[in-house]
Amino acid sequence: MAMVLAAVTIQIVQAYRDDHLAKDLEDERSQLNRRIRDAVKPIPELIAQLPALSYPDRALRVQGIAQACATALYMLIAPHAENIRTAVFALEENPDRMTWLAHVGRGRTPCPFTPGTVRGDAAFEFITALQPAFYPDLTTQQPAGYDESPSDYRTFISIPLWTDESVYGMVTVDAPDPGALTVGDQYVAELIAELMAAAFEIANNGSLSTPLP
């Protein structure tokens, strides 16, 4: 009888633990979903306002959207990765280069990428390849030109900004500690990059959708 009671007790305790574990997991999912909603929500709202603006005003709005994107990326990754920095880079002309539109986090200002340097040529080759890049540990593997300028990060993720029409720049997140960023962070960066690319496309080409009759 004692053995039966002990077995029943163990089952009850295990069921109680499983129930609480499920509730904890559900709470974590809810908190994560709320963080994503709160971080990303302003971005499509700002993008939707672009078609009604004049072209000069669109340029200013794109800068605001870039800041919203960098902030959202920071909000979603910073809770589990210390001292990160997020940035949105855009292509410029006269002179040709890629410079930051917005950055959030660790204090050092991101350096521009200039063609004709190893670092700049590598960055331009990267964005035209239209593929994400993730270097978990820059002490073991580095892209071309990484050591060409002072760097205070040892891991980074870069996502090109592009649509079927054009390439516009890239979104990046970096951190000083190797291994601080994850593949999951890359997925988040890809989401933010899609939104930022849409903002560039609409700002340059005008309409958000086909007008209704």
Rank of each mutant, 00 (worst) to 15 (best):
M1V: 02
A2Q: 09
A2R: 07
M3H: 06
T9H: 01
Q11E: 12
Q14K: 01
Y16H: 09
D18C: 09
H20R: 01
D24S: 14
D27F: 14
S30G: 06
L32F: 15
L32E: 14
R34H: 07
R34N: 07
I36A: 02
R37T: 15
A39P: 08
K41Q: 15
P42H: 00
L46K: 07
A48T: 05
P51L: 00
S54I: 04
Y55S: 15
P56R: 11
R58Q: 13
V62A: 03
Q63G: 14
A66S: 15
A70D: 02
T71H: 01
L73Q: 02
M75C: 06
I77D: 05
A78Y: 13
H80S: 08
A81K: 00
A81S: 04
E82C: 01
R85Y: 11
E92Q: 13
E93L: 12
E93H: 14
R97D: 06
M98W: 01
M98N: 03
T99V: 09
A102F: 01
A102K: 01
H103R: 09
G107Y: 02
T109I: 11
P110D: 03
P110W: 05
P110R: 01
P112R: 01
G116Q: 08
G116R: 06
T117S: 12
V118E: 08
R119M: 02
G120I: 03
D121W: 07
D121F: 04
A122D: 09
A122Q: 03
F124T: 12
E125R: 04
E125W: 04
F126G: 02
F126D: 02
A129N: 11
L130F: 02
P132D: 12
P132F: 06
Y135W: 14
P136E: 13
D137P: 09
D137Q: 08
T139I: 07
T140K: 10
E148S: 06
E148G: 02
P150I: 04
S151Q: 08
T155G: 12
F156Y: 11
S158Y: 14
I159S: 00
P160T: 00
L161A: 10
W162I: 13
T163N: 08
T163G: 08
D164H: 11
S166F: 14
S166R: 15
V167Q: 14
Y168E: 08
T172W: 01
V173P: 14
P178I: 03
V183T: 15
V183Q: 14
Q186W: 06
A189D: 11
E190A: 10
E190G: 13
E194P: 00
L195K: 03
A197G: 15
A198L: 15
A198G: 10
A198Y: 12
A199F: 01
E201Y: 05
I202P: 01
A203K: 05
N204H: 12
N204Q: 12
N205V: 13
N205L: 13
G206M: 03
S207F: 12
S209I: 00
T210E: 13
P211I: 04
P213I: 10
